[in-house]
Amino acid sequence: MKRNNTWLWSAAALVYAFLYIPLAIVVVYSFNDSRLNAEWVGFTLSWYKALFNNAEMLTAAGNSLIIALSASFSATVLGTMAGLAIHRYNLKVLPVLVFTPVAMPEILLGVSLLLFFLQVLNLTLGMVSIIIAHTTFCIGFVAIIVRARLQDMDESLFEAARDLGASPWQTFRLVTLPLIMPAVVAGALMSFTLSIDDFVITFFTKGVGEPILPIQIYTMIKVAVTPEVNAISTLLMLLTLVMIIIAAKLDAHASSRDAKTSS
């Protein structure tokens, strides 16, 4: 058994290294005083300075933030409703509509939305089309998280509220919503991260006007790679890390409260 464990641990350590070394290299080279991502020359913050002087990049970051906030808001509202409806009622069609966009290759959603926006809505592609597209694929993720939380909860809580004479709205506002709140917040954070990171669907629904962050990064990678890409990458990693820590804190808080109420 011992020998087996050593073997497992070394295999796992290699896989963890495979996961982390590439990202570590990106971070390290963001501080490298050389235009080439080849060898370490010296420490510098100039790539970060260049980034903050890059007006187009800042506009792109601002636009992506607006898109992510709008899309995660609408996806959270609609996704929470979908999660509640799927959990509560025996629905046939809604689960298919909600979960298919999550499971299929993103390119299919991107292409079909592009055709739909241009042919049916006659919409000029831009911020609005991206927000709608991001909402469409984020709804499913929120619904999955909310439904999982509902499945973990004791049905008798809702029955008790009803027996005590609460109207459906009161039951929702005073019992259901506070209980599923951690899942709703987790879903919102997840949608925000998915939206700000999304490349494929944004690529198809972006139009030509406003610069968007993932598209800017893509152009930099494809056209001229400078360590500015490493700098923006490092900042984005930091942002997601903060979001994950917040989500984990909320989750820990919720589960400790659950433990208290159930005991």
């Binding site: 290299i25 990106v26 990171d197 993932p214 990678i221 790679v225 990693m237 997601t240």
Partner: peptide, 12 residues
């Protein structure tokens, strides 16, 4: 690592 940007993971 998969919470980091998709393009960045490829770029690495």
């Amino acid at each position: 690592p998969f919470a980091s940007n998709f393009l960045i993971r490829i770029y690495a």
